[in-house]
């Protein structure tokens, strides 16, 4: 067990965002958290990282656990000039070889000297992934890593994550809205709405009544069950509008 949350509750500004959350992260598994907007997905990740203190319950981490964290929104102010290599050297200087390795692992080998502000959405997310990989983490925590990417872009990104998991044998915990990709790419799905509604293997969660209640039995449910074939994903750019309707 790498991270365990027991009876976790988080209050922000007097409002209870999460309550009675139990979650265990084991080595080598890919866990995806799904849930409607405002269900506390990001809050849960931030609590696990240590950016938020629990109002009750606790988070236990394995001794010496290394976390690679990619926050939900990282907007780099255009007034801040920053090359990809310099970004990877924050806050600590790392060896040139290490940054190059991390970039290669994240599928961003050619981007080292580019300005962060010049990167496309997909390139930016890969650089963030590379940064998280620098510490050879035991757990990768990714908050909506594919937001703003088109469908082929996010499919490629999830394949990269699987590759990373194989290379590092790390756990991956991520938040995603792309239900069909989640179903294909996760070992375990946690359905969150202030508390854990249901969790388990993707097939199990997809048929759970709690999950159906949240995502609907109409298009939402159908979309959730729909397994996407990544090999011919071009011309599918308009699909993500459907998921938004399903949220």
């Amino acid at each position: 067990m790498l991270i365990t949350a027991e009876g976790l509750a988080i209050k922000l500004g007097g409002k209870t965002i999460l309550h009675h959350v139990d979650l265990t992260v084991n080595r080598g598994e890919i866990i995806t958290i799904v849930g409607p907007n405002g269900s506390g997905k990001s809050t849960l990740l931030r609590a696990l990282v240590g950016a938020l203190a629990p109002s009750s319950g606790r988070v236990t981490k394995a001794a010496g656990l290394k976390i690679g964290y990619v926050p939900q929104k990282l907007q780099i102010d255009p007034t801040l000039p920053l090359t990809v290599n310099r970004f990877l050297n924050l806050p600590k200087r790392v060896a040139r070889v290490a940054t190059q390795n991390a970039l290669e692992q994240a599928g961003a080998a050619q981007l080292g000297n580019r300005q962060m502000s010049d990167l496309s959405g997909g390139q930016f997310q890969r650089v963030l992934l590379a940064r998280a990989l620098l510490s050879t983490p035991d757990v990768l925590i990714l908050d909506e890593p594919t937001q703003g990417l088109d469908q082929p872009g996010s499919a490629a990104f999830y394949q990269q994550i699987e590759q990373v998991r194989r290379d590092l044998n790390c756990a991956v915990l991520m938040v995603s809205h792309e239900l069909h990709v989640v179903m294909a790419a996760s070992d375990r799905v946690v359905c969150l709405n202030g508390h854990v509604c249901c969790e388990g293997a993707p097939e199990h969660v997809a048929s759970a009544p709690e999950y159906r209640a949240l995502f609907g039995t109409g298009t939402g449910g159908a979309l959730a069950l729909y397994r996407h074939d990544h090999n011919h994903s071009h011309d599918h750019h308009d699909h993500h509008h459907d998921h938004e309707a399903a949220e």
Binding site: R46, V49, A51, Y69, K73, I76, L80, L90, P91, K92
Partner: peptide
């Protein structure tokens, strides 16, 4: 310098690296 720069980029990112 480095700690302030990291905190300027993103507070959660900073926290996750112990800043």
């Amino acid at each position: 310098w480095n700690a302030m720069l990291t905190a300027t980029l993103n507070t959660d990112l900073a926290t996750s690296t112990g800043i």
